[in-house]
Simulated assay, not measured.
Amino acid sequence: MTRPYAEVIGDPIVQSKSPAIHNFWLGKLGLDAEYRACHVLPAELGDYFARRRGDPDWRGCNITMPHKQAAMAFLDEVDPQAARIGAVNTVVRGVDGRLTGYNTDAPGFLEPLQPLLADTHLFRMARILGAGGAARAIVAALADEGFTLVLAARDPAKARALLDELAPKGEHHAVDLAHFAPETDFAFDDRQGLLDLIVNASPLGMAGQPPLAFDFSHAPPGSVVYDIVTHPLDTPLLVEARQRGFPTVDGLAMLIGQAAVAFEKFFGAPAPREQDAQLREILTA
């Protein structure tokens, strides 16, 4: 007796929290399906999709590093937002075996910010630290929400090229990542009616990585500080932000948010988000 399944693929894959998230939701909804992890090497990617395409029980997969861009070559269709971002993290198999790619990182990143985005602001600015793969979805998402972006990278030319590609219409700025390390005496304007974000979209501050050098004199009053790192969940950036009185968003918010979009595409039912507190306990145990 077979049953529907989805999975996450990557190289490596043991670190993925996706099976825990999706199987938790499947259990809560009582759905007869499962979610697995599958280790796929880069050279095996084409064979993987060829095999899965013919499996009627396979609903699709999430994609983690390093396959988010390479996978696009093996799909029949790519959602316009994913095509713009240039990366796919969710593939869905249609009943006819056609494979469609999506990027759920962008809506997943925005989800915890929706209460703020529902308000009208005179000006929105986001300082984004890092210009790697994760930053692509974040830049596209925030540009679409009317933010002026300051994108910081070790290579400012890379940041400039990314802005020109993904957010060509705005007055955005590319700077060296080191710009935010020393103290500044910049006098921020009146905060009334403004929305400011500080986003760490880099692996800096992650376990085993160098620390993120950010001086909070660069954070306007009332800024929301958002770190997409999930290990540790409480990064030094978030700890200091809270100590200084800034509201914070951690990496699990984006991880769970993007998973919820994929879950509904795979299994045809909304994720039971009223269980988020219990899910967080499981993921942080």
Rank of each mutant, 00 (worst) to 15 (best):
Y226K: 07
D105C: 05
F266A: 01
D155Y: 06
A201I: 09
K169R: 13
D190M: 10
E274R: 06
G94L: 06
L26E: 00
A181W: 10
D196K: 11
F263D: 00
L116H: 13
Q258A: 02
E240F: 07
L162K: 01
C61L: 05
L41F: 12
P232T: 11
D11L: 09
S202C: 06
A259M: 04
P211C: 08
P4A: 14
F109A: 00
D215F: 12
R59T: 06
R160W: 09
S16T: 14
D105Q: 03
D11S: 15
R59C: 12
I138Q: 00
H179N: 08
N23R: 07
A241Y: 06
D57E: 12
D119I: 14
A106F: 00
F109Y: 05
M125G: 13
A219S: 13
W25G: 01
P236V: 11
G10V: 05
A269S: 14
A159I: 07
V88L: 01
P12H: 07
R136Y: 07
G30W: 02
M1E: 11
L129M: 14
V78M: 04
A141E: 02
A152G: 12
A106P: 00
A6D: 02
D164E: 11
L116K: 06
L149K: 00
K17A: 09
L255V: 12
A141N: 05
L204Q: 02
L238P: 02
